[in-house]
Amino acid sequence: MKHHKNLIVVTNSIITAYELGRNPYIKTILLGGYYNPDTNAVFGHHAIQQLNDYKLDKLFLSIDGISASDGVTSEHPYETEICRAMIKNAAEVIVTADFSKVGVSRFIQIASLDEIDMLITDDKAPADEIKIIEKRGVKVVLV
């Protein structure tokens, strides 16, 4: 297996930082900020300020809902701004969501579909919703 020694991951997720930090071939930067024990992630002004120092090639964004009508949504309004900053700083935005989140709209919008490049979901996702999302210009990958 080829190792990418130049891979640097920037995350606000404590769990992601811990798991990736165990791999000697990945450099991991954990953003600082307010800690949310419900999501094991950090957010807030300090995290966004630090994030703005970085230019991200690819963003993998885990979300609570994605729909053709409301775009990408979240149940956590206090983490919305860091998600928006990540999207703004990324060259490519890849949303990850299992089938239960496709066609679903949550409390607050993070981004519209035109800000998203790709959706990775599973083959149980509603086919009619996937077709509409694809028509809106988002590449959909079913796994």
Rank of each mutant, 00 (worst) to 15 (best):
M1W: 11
K2W: 10
H4M: 12
N6W: 15
N6E: 15
V9S: 07
T11Q: 04
N12I: 01
S13V: 01
I14T: 03
I14H: 06
I15Y: 14
I15Q: 12
T16F: 14
A17S: 15
Y18C: 08
E19I: 09
E19N: 12
G21V: 00
G21R: 03
R22T: 09
R22F: 14
R22W: 11
N23P: 06
K27S: 13
K27G: 10
T28E: 02
T28M: 05
T28P: 10
G33I: 03
Y34E: 06
Y35S: 00
Y35G: 01
Y35M: 02
Y35L: 12
P37C: 04
D38A: 10
D38T: 04
T39L: 09
N40G: 12
N40W: 14
A41I: 04
A41M: 08
A41E: 09
A41Y: 06
V42A: 03
G44I: 00
H45L: 14
H46L: 14
I48V: 08
I48E: 13
I48T: 02
Q49F: 07
Q49S: 11
Q50D: 05
L51Y: 04
N52E: 15
Y54M: 12
Y54K: 01
K55C: 09
K55W: 08
L56R: 00
D57V: 08
L59Y: 05
F60M: 10
L61Q: 04
S62T: 15
S62V: 13
S62Y: 09
I63R: 00
D64I: 00
G65L: 09
S67R: 00
S69H: 10
D70Y: 02
V72L: 11
T73R: 01
S74H: 04
E75M: 15
H76Q: 12
E79I: 10
E81Y: 11
C83K: 04
R84G: 09
R84T: 05
I87W: 10
K88R: 14
A91H: 14
A91P: 11
E92N: 08
V93D: 00
I94V: 14
I94K: 09
V95Q: 00
V95T: 03
T96G: 15
A97K: 01
A97V: 07
F99L: 01
V102C: 06
S105Y: 05
R106G: 09
R106Q: 15
I108F: 07
I108Y: 10
I108S: 09
A111L: 15
A111E: 05
A111P: 13
L113G: 01
L113Y: 00
D114N: 12
E115W: 07
E115V: 05
I116T: 00
M118V: 12
M118Y: 07
L119P: 11
I120F: 04
T121D: 14
D122Q: 13
D122G: 09
D122C: 06
D123N: 07
D123V: 01
A125I: 10
E129G: 07
E129N: 07
E129R: 06
I130W: 08
K131Y: 05
I132P: 05
E134S: 02
G137S: 11
G137N: 11
G137Y: 11
V138E: 03
L142R: 09
V143P: 12
V143G: 12
V143K: 13
